[in-house]
Amino acid sequence: MQRILVIDDAATVRLYHRSILEAAGYAVDEAINGVEGLEKALRAPFDLYLVDVNMPKLDGYGFLQELRKTELPQAPAIMVSTEAARSDLERAYVAGANFYLIKPVKPDALLTDVRLLLGAPRP
């Protein structure tokens, strides 16, 4: 089963994303900030990361930079933010995001992107 890590400091958002993804059959783990996200990824890398921008301790940009520096298999990452500014988008890409979604993410849009970014299930 493909594993997705949802990193967001808001429990509501984590539950929201988790519910959508689990209903679609993905295995979902959560982290409340970038630090915990990194810890979890280092323990067992994920197939996709769903990353919030603003978080305490280590924000989404910081998490992605650190993740991309590691020797882990580099899985796609989606940055999720309420901001729709062009500068934020570029900052996300620089940090290592592969895609950018604006909150609130619609369930069908999220699933479409997740499905594409995870590709065909590994045989």
Binding site: P76, Y93, V94, G96, G119
Partner: peptide, 25 residues
């Protein structure tokens, strides 16, 4: 992107992983 950040390699790998996922097997 025209930068040379320390995590550029990881970023390239992630792009490749994304492209691979988008490319039906």
């Amino acid at each position: 992107l025209q930068d040379d950040v320390a995590w550029r390699g990881g970023r390239l790998k992630a792009v490749a992983a994304t492209l691979a996922a988008c490319c039906p097997r």
